[in-house]
């Protein structure tokens, strides 16, 4: 994408984020009806991270997500209909009704997710390690939350990757909370990226609410890794607007104030880019309207597909164990 006209890039990124936002808002809207029966961790507010990073990747790179994986799946180009059918527990789901929301994966697009904290960090390193063995230029990207950074396996994986110069980009989505516990109760005050720097690799922090900043940093880091730098680390500060798991706002709960949430909502990555692009006439209101309309129709189609899809058959239960 780097070669493309920068305005086109911005428009594409805006469209991608808007699409993910609208999809998740629709899921949140229908969730209470009980058609979707799987714990869902929404990415609303955090879209810029997945979108900005994935825009800098090639199709043969591999991506690993945490439990909060809708945005990563969609930004990577995962099929919306297959995701919707998966959330509805149908046989046409991307994993046939066996992954649900938190284990979304599509080997077709080299993308996996898992909700055991830190579980896929070493797996991503392993993929990168294999690329390096074969002299390939591809890289692995591992997305994980600030809490996953506390797992032993995360430190072990970074150590190995640095030691073996593995082509992997670590992306820590720091939304400051592990469920409802602020990072100040879980980690020393020195920022995550600074701690990682002590391994002697480039580690930086970017504003995860600014998709262009994420995209530019990613494009640079990805190129550097392809050129043989070994692993690099990017911490993206961001914020989840909804509750930890589930479709609701959780303003009136003691772990964070409504004021804080509202402050971050004002920094919404979509609204920000939208304002910028309208101001410098990169897009028009009309274009944006038709963009949203198209997305909305696409979502209608995916819901229709999910609802009309068959349930898994009884014999599917014991399929694919081995």
């Amino acid at each position: 994408m780097a070669a493309k006209n920068i305005d086109t890039v911005k428009k594409t990124l805006l469209r991608e984020m808007l699409r993910i936002r609208m999809i998740e808002e629709r899921i949140a809207e229908i969730y209470p009806r009980g058609e979707i029966r799987t714990p869902a961790h929404f990415s609303i507010g955090q879209e810029a991270v997945s979108v900005g990073v994935c825009a800098a990747l090639g199709k043969d790179d591999w991506v690993f997500n945490s439990h909060r994986c809708h945005a990563g799946y969609l930004a990577r180009g995962g099929s919306l209909s297959s995701m919707m059918a998966e959330l509805f527990g149908r046989s046409t789901g991307v994993c046939g009704g066996k992954s649900g929301s938190a284990h979304l994966a599509s080997p077709k697009i080299n993308m996996y997710s898992a909700p055991i904290l830190g579980a896929l960090i070493p797996v991503g390193v392993g993929v990168g390690f294999s690329f390096a063995m074969d002299g390939k230029k591809n890289i692995a990207v591992v997305f994980f939350g600030d809490a996953a950074f506390e797992e032993g396996v995360c430190a072990e994986s970074i150590n190995f990757a640095v030691l073996k110069k593995v082509p992997v980009l670590f992306v820590c989505e720091n939304n400051f909370f592990s469920s409802h516990t602020h990072i100040k109760y879980r980690q020393p005050a020195i920022p995550i990226y600074k701690r990682v720097k002590s391994y002697g690799i480039e580690a930086l922090r970017v504003d995860g609410m600014d998709v262009m900043e994420v995209y530019k940093a990613s494009a640079r880091l990805v190129k550097k890794i392809r050129d043989g730098s070994g692993p690099l680390f990017m911490e993206c500060t961001t914020y989840r607007f909804l509750e930890h798991v589930g479709p609701n706002f959780d303003f009136n709960n003691p772990y964070r104030t409504e004021k804080e949430v509202r402050m971050w909502m004002r920094r919404c990555p979509i609204a920000r880019l939208r304002r910028r692009l309208l101001k410098d006439n990169t897009v028009t209101e009309k274009e944006l309207e038709s963009m949203a309309e198209k997305i909305s129709l696409e979502i209608d189609g995916s819901l229709d597909y999910a609802r009309k899809s068959p349930w898994p058959e009884d014999e599917d239960l014991l399929k694919d164990v081995y």
Partner: peptide
């Protein structure tokens, strides 16, 4: 439980 990992789809959960 059935001799497979826990599925997600509630139709499969019913059988599991």
């Amino acid at each position: 439980v059935a001799d497979c990992p826990s599925p997600v789809s509630f139709k499969l959960e019913e059988k599991f």
